[in-house]
């Protein structure tokens, strides 16, 4: 691991300014993904700004009856929160399907959104990877790509976003609240937060350098059957091959987002009017333009069948 200096931020503004003005500085919160990557020297910060003391660890009701989740709320606490379990069940379910109990106790809401892909070529510095080293190529394109993206990918990168939580946030229309070094705040709809890889797969979100996530807000609850179904190679503690986050209303209408298939949580709103016509109709629209490899082609029928199981569960 590369040597780094360390400071505890005293205010959010200080933290944001410190990252913006210090070369190769990064925020650290839960650290479960960042330290993993620092040990492998995939992340090589020279300075860490610990934001754990900034007090963004509360979950509060918003004026319109939604929920404001502090950026530092741990995944365990978010999953266990009474209102999340009651009103945003898809989020609680997504959280407990990810990682392990130990990791969920440390991992934060903002950090979960910012976690990096688990593509093995990204993780292996001996392999080419445009995300780790822009311009070096993509080892996965012609390599072992069973886990990789089937839609929205590019010739530069076919990695997937690994988060379960983010898929639920997408179906819930969450908003990411941030603070910039100049003191300005902004609200980024979750749909616009993560980027597709294009020619710049090293840019994963639309955050500016030094911009600090302060909270994630959820609109007021919309009810319905809220289901998160994750398909993976073992029953627990593994990343999704495919996952489905869905909110299905009694009349059959609803929303759906897919995980494990793209560089960001994959939701196509134009596919949702087909919800009452079943999984095939929705999947055909949601995966229009999909481009699978020989190894990951199974993800397309798997996504449709997982959605079919979710719709059957919602009706039951």
């Amino acid at each position: 691991m590369r040597a780094f200096s360390y400071e505890r931020a005293r205010t959010p503004q200080d933290a944001s300014i410190a990252v913006a003005r210090t070369p190769e500085a990064k925020f650290i919160a839960g650290g479960t993904n960042l330290l993993d990557l620092m040990k492998l020297e995939i992340e090589r910060p020279r300075h860490l700004i610990d934001v754990n003391g900034l007090g963004f660890d509360k979950i509060e009701t918003t004026q319109d009856g939604g929920l404001r989740i502090g950026a530092l709320v741990r995944n365990t606490d978010l999953a266990a929160h009474e209102r999340v379990r009651r009103d945003y069940g898809v989020l609680s379910r997504a959280l407990v399907s990810g990682a392990s109990g130990q990791l969920r106790n440390k991992a934060t809401t903002a950090g979960n959104l910012l976690q990096r892909t688990r593509c093995p070529y990204f993780y292996d510095p001996a392999q080419p990877c445009n995300k780790r080293e822009p311009g070096s190529g993509c080892g996965a394109l012609q390599g072992i790509n069973r886990q990789h993206a089937v839609i929205g990918a590019s010739q530069a990168c076919i990695a997937t976003h690994p988060s379960d939580m983010a898929v639920a946030m997408r179906v819930l229309d969450a908003t990411v609240e941030t603070l910039a070094p100049d003191g300005k705040t902004r609200s980024i709809p979750i749909a616009d937060f993560h980027r597709l890889p294009g020619d710049t797969p090293h840019l994963e979100t639309n955050l500016a350098h030094g911009e600090l996530i302060t909270a994630v807000t959820l609109p007021r609850p919309i009810g319905g059957a809220q289901i998160y179904r994750k398909v993976r190679d073992r029953a627990s503690y593994a990343f999704a091959l495919v996952s489905v986050a869905a909110i299905v209303q009694p009349d059959g209408s609803g929303r759906v987002a897919f995980g494990g298939v793209a560089h960001k949580p994959w939701r196509v709103e134009a596919a949702e009017p087909a919800m009452s016509r079943g999984a095939k109709a929705v999947s055909e629209r949601a995966f229009t333009g999909a481009k699978a490899t020989e190894q990951n082609a199974f993800k397309l029928p798997l996504a449709e069948r997982t959605l079919a199981a979710v719709l059957a569960e919602a009706r039951a």
Binding site: Y6, I28, G31, T32, L35, D36, L48, D50, N52, T76, G101, Q102, L103, N105, K106
Partner: peptide, 19 residues
């Protein structure tokens, strides 16, 4: 490496002592 910190189990390998 699981230890209990402030009442919660965590992976001691994935956190810095100075934190």
């Amino acid at each position: 490496c699981t230890v209990i910190v402030d009442g919660r189990r965590i992976n001691a390998c994935l956190t810095l002592a100075v934190m």
